[in-house]
């Protein structure tokens, strides 16, 4: 979860409104499908995190835990390949 940039967490919390900010990493994010598409777009344009086509499965965006795991895996892959 520490892998998730603060501005992405802020964006998620805004997207969830009127739900309260996420406090538990296991809590379902409850962002609808259009919101998820916007979230992917935000990750790419504002956070520099490229989401591959194959990673576009709803489970990756279900909780902060799963999203953090996805980002961690990506930065790990980036390190090994560089």
């Amino acid at each position: 979860m520490e892998q998730i940039p603060q501005k992405l967490i802020d964006y998620i919390n805004e997207s969830r409104a009127p739900l309260p900010p996420v406090s538990d990493p296991e809590e379902p994010l409850q962002i609808d499908s259009l919101g998820l598409i916007r979230l992917v777009s935000f990750m790419e344009s504002d956070c520099g995190i490229r989401v591959e086509d194959e990673e576009l499965v709803a489970e990756n965006f279900a909780t902060l835990r799963s999203l953090g795991a996805l980002i961690a895996k990506k930065s790990q892959n980036a390190e090994t390949s560089s």
Binding site: S33, L34, L36, I37, V40, S41, D53, L56, A58, F61
Partner: peptide
Amino acid sequence: EQPFAFATFVHYR
């Protein structure tokens, strides 16, 4: 099989 990916593809990819 992948409705979320499909919707993303429709929107911009």
